[in-house]
Design a protein around this nucleic acid. Structure first.
Length: 501
RNA sequence: GGUCCUGUGGCCGAGUGGCUAGGCAGAGCUCUGCAAAAGCUCCCACAGCGGUUCGAAUCCGCUCGGGACCUCCA
């Protein structure tokens, strides 16, 4: 079965065909490292991590490029740069690289917490100023950009006029037309420098107080908002590559501008499939800086944000995100996260137990119906992923299988209910989908050898107490362990198992 | 104002013209010294009003509600 993905450019699901199989080039817009990542940022990174993992599973050799935006108009969030006061001492100055360093580290830390695979290349905007300048020069040379007072702007109307003839008007991705925008664009600084209000900056002249600045043919300045992605994507993935991903809010203007820039330079739309994840909302409203409703990832992980009733682990957050399909909005609430936390625990406990079991292949199923059903559920996992990465349905099917696993564990059924082949397949498929594709892993900070030894000892004592019906002692052991977040459970055969919070 | 999306049970969320989504919460039962887990069962929803159809939550229209983008934004 073939992978189908929804292409924002054509507004329909399309069979995925790489330009040069088995190679796949994928570019995803990364973070601006002027502040800490929040829950909303986690969605694209987890979504495209799963896309990356799935493409690899499909046998593709993927080059996954995800940039870091570290150039531009930078100030630390919530702080006003004190340039006037600090001009004397270098150490008192706001040093952009210091911010970039700090937030890049935090971002990498968060990605690691989420168990996201690192991209193949993670280029920075500041590391590609030359490429951006070269690209701008080419756009000017071809007549689609003009210099004005040390800044350079893209001539949207000219582009639109010429490329509409080639069936590729400005607005092709987001479904807008330039005429509408001429009426609605808001007033911005230096509007008068532009020929038209819809034109966007490729290069901006740096005001005297602006700290980040580079030499260019047009004087000292810094690159515009959209050119870095075009330059870096072209450099590492070529003029035309397979997948371009990012959040829906980047569709316009960011990706639209990328298309225009790259089309002028490379004569074609840079990417074949455009994938956009939807937003995470909170009380129905998009989580975003401008709405002042963001929950930073560090706050989520330690529960310090006022709206949170508790801390949530990175895997809980990852699972929460994967329980929905990436193209729909996802509404945050404590209740929803708590539901994910419990569900994930049930999933992982059943899966961890399954991993420890050994099954012989062959044999026949005593419960033919169940055997067929399990195989159907397992086979559907691939179908669902192939259908535009529907992780919500994948997760739902995993939960269909769990009762059977727990039934075997609790000896409600015997292992010959389904065939040995099916058991082995179940083990293989669950490992593949849970760990390799969804990227979920067991979070086991408290598991230590010594601790396990101590618990084993307590279990021994408790067993002895139970044997002589000394329930006061046995309950004391269990209750106090529970208070510490260690849950003892009496199994059917008299054994005791335990789990950590 | 322009462009577009959306409205599913207490909550989060899949979904297809006719067949149980799934999770969490809630109720009952089984197991158990008790508990916790787990299993089984129940809770059968699709904003409203029309229309198309043998049949619509799923297609069309209208009404009402919510949201996104048009500015940096994942």
């Amino acid at each position: 079965m073939a992978l189908k993905i929804y292409n924002s450019l054509t507004r329909q699901k399309e069979v995925f065909k790489p330009l040069q199989a088995p190679h796949v080039g994928m570019y995803v817009c990364g973070p601006t490292v002027s502040g800490e990542s929040h829950l909303g940022h986690a969605r694209p990174f987890i979504t495209f991590d799963v896309v990356y993992r799935y493409l690899i599973h499909k046998g593709y050799k993927v080059r996954y490029v995800r940039n870091i935006t570290d150039a531009g108009h930078f100030e630390e969030e919530g702080k006003v740069a004190d340039d006037k006061i600090s001009s004397k001492a270098i150490l008192e100055k706001l040093e952009p690289m210091e911010l970039v360093q700090k937030y890049t580290h935090l971002y990498h830390w968060a990605m690691d917490q989420f168990n996201n695979l690192p991209p193949s290349i993670e280029p920075t905007a500041t590391g590609h100023i030359i490429e951006q300048i070269e690209m701008i020069k080419k756009i000017i040379k071809d007549g689609y950009a003009y210099e004005a007072n040390g800044s350079v702007y893209f001539d949207v109307l000219k582009y639109n006029e010429d490329y509409t003839k080639k069936n590729q008007p400005y607005g092709i991705l987001s479904g807008r037309n330039v005429e509408d925008q001429l009426d609605t664009s808001r007033e911005l600084d230096n509007q008068d420098e532009k020929k038209n209000k819809v034109d966007f900056a490729l290069w901006k002249k740096a005001p005297a107080e602006h700290i980040m600045r580079w030499q260019s043919p047009w004087g000292e300045g810094f690159p515009g908002w959209h050119i870095e992605c075009s330059a870096m994507a072209t450099k590492y993935l070529g003029k035309k590559f397979d997948i371009h991903g990012g959040g829906m809010d980047l569709q316009f203007p960011h990706h639209e501008c990328e298309i225009a820039q790259s089309t002028v330079c490379n004569h074609e739309i840079p990417a074949r499939y455009w994938m956009h994840n939807n937003m995470i909302t909170i009380n129905g409203r998009k989580m975003g800086k401008s709405y002042n409703n963001v929950i930073k990832l560090s706050e989520l992980f330690d529960g310090s944000h006022p709206i949170l009733t508790q801390a949530y682990t990175p895997m809980t957050v990852r699972f929460f995100i994967l329980q929905s399909q990436y193209r729909g909005t996802l509404d945050f609430s404590n209740e929803a996260l708590q539901a994910s936390e419990k569900a994930l625990r049930r999933l992982m406990e059943a899966y961890e137990w399954l991993k420890t079991q050994t099954f012989q292949t062959g044999s026949t199923a005593k419960d033919k119906t169940l055997d067929v059903q399990i195989n159907t559920w397992l086979n559907e996992l691939t179908e669902f992923m192939d259908d535009d990465i529907n992780t919500a349905k994948v997760v739902a099917n995993l939960f269909e299988i769990i009762p059977t696993l727990n039934s075997l564990k609790d000896k409600h059924i015997t292992s010959d209910a389904i065939s040995g082949d099916t058991w082995v397949k179940t083990q293989q498929q669950l490992e593949l989908f849970i760990e390799n594709i969804l990227g979920l892993k067991v979070e086991s900070g408290a598991h230590r050898h010594q601790l396990n030894g101590v618990i084993d000892l307590l279990i021994e004592i408790r067993k002895e107490a139970k044997a002589r019906k000394d329930f006061a002692t046995s309950d004391k052991i269990r209750n106090q362990l529970t208070d510490m977040g260690i849950h003892l459970k009496d199994e059917k055969d008299g054994a005791m198992s335990y789990t950590f919070d």
